[in-house]
């Protein structure tokens, strides 16, 4: 090993970097990724420490100053019961940034397991599971969510489960096609010849080699999860009052939009837009870095 490390530094630069460092290096040079990361980190910081730097309590009402337009006192104005919109936008990032990543995590774990199973066993297992997954993918998430919420009631857990399970088939499909290519390789045959169990072969041998597509798919799904969580909150099926969640705030304020109270909804809408675009920029960057 020491002999290897004495090769010239020029060669080092291109060849000897570990794959992980390689990916990180190209991520750091991707402007899309860095801009996206900055936006996402900003909202994560708001979610974690928001109440410390928000000027007002996001839940404190002040009826006398209700529906005040933006001013130096209330940068983004106040809503219909006088709550400070700026503080609410800052703290409103918390719920969506808890629910959406958890849903994505669930989707990734379930989808990866299903993708490994179908890709590895093929045959009847693949046929049956794949048909069921395809059927799932044909139903819009909003409809699944409506039905699930009718049956199970509204809660953050329901939202996480609904979105997680709706997205799992899509991840499963990606993982499956990666596994199909991977299982033809010699190391899988070697593992089988060693009489390793199927589970061992799938999760210890194959899984590490299909991480890159899973990572890309996960970041893309996170963007869609934020989309879905925000939409469900807006429909009244997600995060519940009195949370200052963005979708929820828009749904309780957009009725007055005709009265010209634009500040009660615009900033929440822009917040969602920036977060979704930020996550998608990150996803784009990760995709680019892993496919180089």
């Amino acid at each position: 090993m020491s002999a290897v490390q004495t090769t010239s530094p020029a060669q080092d630069d291109t060849r000897r970097r570990s794959p992980l460092a390689e990916v990180l290096f190209s991520l750091m040079r991707s402007r899309t990724f860095l801009v996206g990361l900055a936006i996402v980190l900003f909202w994560v910081a708001c979610a974690l420490f928001g109440e410390h730097f928000a000027p007002y309590d996001p839940l404190a009402d002040d009826i006398i100053n209700a529906l005040a337009p933006p001013s130096s006192e209330h940068w983004f104005g106040t809503d219909q019961i006088g709550r400070d919109v700026f503080s609410r936008v800052i703290v409103g990032s918390r719920d969506i940034l808890t629910v959406a990543p958890l849903a994505t995590l669930l989707a990734t774990v379930a989808g990866t397991a299903l993708g490994l199973l179908t890709g590895y066993f093929r045959g009847i297992v693949d046929d049956v599971v794949s048909r069921i997954l395809e059927a799932f993918m044909a139903i819009p998430v909003v409809i699944v969510a409506l039905l699930a919420i009718v049956a199970l009631g509204t809660s953050k857990t329901t939202v996480i489960i609904v979105i997680g399970l709706s997205f799992a088939p899509i991840i499963a499909r990606t993982v499956r096609s990666a596994v199909l290519a991977e299982r033809e390789l010699d190391y899988v045959a070697a593992a089988q010849l060693r009489h390793e169990s199927a589970l061992h072969t799938m999760f210890v041998e194959i899984l590490p080699n299909v991480i890159p597509p899973i990572l890309v798919e996960t970041t893309v799904r996170l963007g869609y999860a934020i989309f879905a969580v925000a939409t469900l909150s807006f429909m009244g099926f997600g995060i519940q009052p009195p949370s200052p969640d963005w979708g929820l705030s828009i749904s309780s304020n957009y009725g007055m939009i005709g009265g010209g109270f634009w500040w009660t909804v615009l900033f929440d809408a822009l917040a969602i837009a920036s977060l979704v675009i930020g996550v998608n920029l990150v996803a784009d960057g990760v995709h680019g870095a892993l496919n180089d």
């Binding site: 989309f227 925000a230 807006f234 979708g247 969602i272 979704v276």
Partner: peptide, 9 residues
């Protein structure tokens, strides 16, 4: 990638 209600608003 933006939710419809956001662009709608």
């Amino acid at each position: 990638v933006l939710p419809e209600f956001v662009t709608g608003i």
